[in-house]
């Protein structure tokens, strides 16, 4: 069984849900907007044993023989409209990798991701060609990154950054683009007199607000947040969190929030999965997880956050 599988052919022989694997029961929801099944991302070549001999039980995501990193494996979850799912875990646990594979920033090694807003979820978006995947990012799926430089053009004005997805969606009326940009900036509490300033001159908190405004430009049904407040001052982070929470209540979005910070997870999400060494170790309601974590690693994380 020690074969190196190729992307397509060898997948059936790889362990996913089979007996012997420590699989966490997934909470299923009715009418999921995002459906993720068996998502996996491996850096480097790997074998069946690489999968079987990494993960929480082995205390590493690195295959000792090949040096490959099993960054994420066998990740499953559903997210419904109006719901926010958190992904928690320490640095290197694979939570951002999962988000980037869904967003299309990185190619997944294996898995099945379906979006209700794309052909009614009939196709696995991981198999779409890059151009079609990029088009999903215009009005179906937006991402807010920890580093504003990833989500924004820093040398362009706040209004221009919002004009980008609007023009990509076919907006050609200057006045209406201005109106829409001003409206979004108002809702994300960016002072309108900064609208025509380039984003590089903005503070960290303000950049995040512009990023959120841009992400919402074409009313996407899906929003992915990758550590949206990490690196901000506590008071600024609280303001941005407040804003996100309010927007989530107003808009009927399906949201995935990646964070190592339980305060963020507690404030924004109803459910969350805990990841360690590239695997999901717990899938629970957020309240439940914080009150009564089941997995030893979750217990450690919660205890650390509560200390």
């Amino acid at each position: 069984m020690n074969t190196v599988p190729t992307q397509e052919a060898g997948m059936n022989t790889l362990p996913t849900q089979e007996a012997g694997m420590n699989t966490v029961p997934t909470i299923h929801v009715a009418d999921p907007v995002i459906q993720v099944r068996n998502l996996g991302k491996v850096y480097g070549s790997f074998t069946r044993d690489s999968i079987l001999q990494t993960g929480p039980e082995f205390g590493t995501a690195r295959d000792p023989r090949t040096g490959s990193i099993i960054a994420a494996w066998n990740v499953n979850f559903d997210v419904a409209a109006g719901e926010a799912l958190g992904i928690v875990g320490e640095s290197g646990s694979g939570k951002s990798t999962v988000l980037r594979c869904i967003a299309g920033d990185q190619p997944a090694t294996t898995g099945d991701v379906r979006l209700a807003c794309h052909d009614n979820g009939e196709f696995n978006i991981l198999h779409l060609d890059p151009a079609t995947r990029r088009r999903l990012r215009i009005d179906k799926l937006s991402v807010v990154y920890q580093d504003a430089a990833e989500g924004l053009a820093l040398g362009v004005t706040a209004g221009g950054n919002i004009a980008d997805p609007l023009t990509a969606a076919g907006w050609r009326h200057f006045g209406r683009i201005r109106e829409r940009a001003a409206d979004l900036l108002r809702r994300t509490e960016v002072p309108l007199d900064r609208m025509d300033d380039i984003v590089r001159t903005f503070s960290g908190g303000m950049r995040q607000r512009v990023q959120i405004a841009r992400a919402l430009a074409n009313n996407p049904p899906i929003l992915l947040l990758d550590e949206p407040t990490t690196g901000l001052d506590a008071s600024v982070a609280a303001g941005v969190l407040d804003l996100i929470r309010r927007l989530l209540e107003e808009l009927d979005l399906a949201v995935v929030v990646v964070s190592h910070d339980f305060a963020v997870i507690e404030m924004l999400t109803q459910r969350c999965i805990v990841m360690q060494h590239g695997r999901v170790v717990e899938d629970a309601l957020t309240d439940q997880l914080l009150e009564d974590p089941q997995h030893p690693y979750s217990q450690k994380l919660v205890a650390a956050a509560r200390a």
């Binding site: 151009a131 053009a153 209004g159 221009g160 004009a163 997805p165 990509a168 025509d196």
Partner: peptide
Amino acid sequence: HAEADYSKMWVSLYEDKVR
């Protein structure tokens, strides 16, 4: 060019007009 993705060009026209 391949994807006819010209939003950056439009943003530069937008910025020109704003400035």
